[in-house]
Amino acid sequence: MQEGYAGMNPILATIMKRLMTGLLTLLIVTGIIFAAVELLPGDIATETLGQSATPETLAALRAELHLDDPAIVRYGRWLGGALQGDFGMSLANKRPTSDLIAARAMNTFFLAGYAAAIAVPLAVGLGLLAALYRNSAFDRLISGSTLAAISFPEYFVAYILILVFSVHLGWFPSLANVEPGAAFGHRLYVTFLPAVTLTLIVMAHMMRMTRAAIINLLALPYIEMARLKGMKHWRVIAVHALPNALAPIINVVALNLAYLIVGVVLVEVVFVYPGLGQLLVDSVAKRDFPVVQAACLIFAATYILLNLAADVLSVISNPRLLHPR
């Protein structure tokens, strides 16, 4: 086996391969996004000036923004800059795209990370408990309630939480409008309800996958062997089954983390959270291509990196791959 890799660490080889395909994917994504924005009716000039557009003002704005150049030239110009780390200026407000997006992207990642920090341990823990006490009332209760949570639209879950914890109990604010430079503790406090909303949305999938992955293993000989060695029930589940169920669990966690990034977009409207979503919606509406492009690249790169991380973790969690014969 090892000759083929010429001594290269299999994890490193996987990472390199995935990163290369990831970069290629990103390049294709930029092309698709550019084409999609081009295909939308109207351009930044018509959308900025809206109802008050006149041929003269349109012409003036287009000249200012170099919209008269052919599409391929504009794309090439953008790509050239992007390859050197310059993502250009927003066409709409002429701020550097990176400035515009950085703070919002950080906010999105912060909230997604916060939700993940709650959701992943909770989902895996509950999944383990559900597997441990499978077909019990407890199992049915948490399966049912997590299913119910995902059956409702995101905003509905959010409104219920606001109604209970903000309006009636007054424990948490309904607005999660964090200001730049807010203290970490304060951030955690004001973004608690959106984080819980996201948690409820993504938990069910991870919880059920954990439960299913563990239960799938329970009939395997080595699990039976652990029982026949007189191991306690929880130890059989947590020590013998869980490490072997990690690969599918890691994959579903990665999938849900990617969804969390998108999920932030859904809840940010309700909680008035300054994430990427509103910016992206506005930028699409204004045909502000550099901003749309940068935001989409962040989403795409996140997705690719999460999958890469999942692959690497799957390798690490599998002794067969980590310690070849």
Binding site: I162, V167, V269, V272, Q278
Partner: peptide, 13 residues
Amino acid sequence: IADVNARTTALQT
């Protein structure tokens, strides 16, 4: 704040 419910709740609280 685009969402009317978010505005209303914020005023209410």
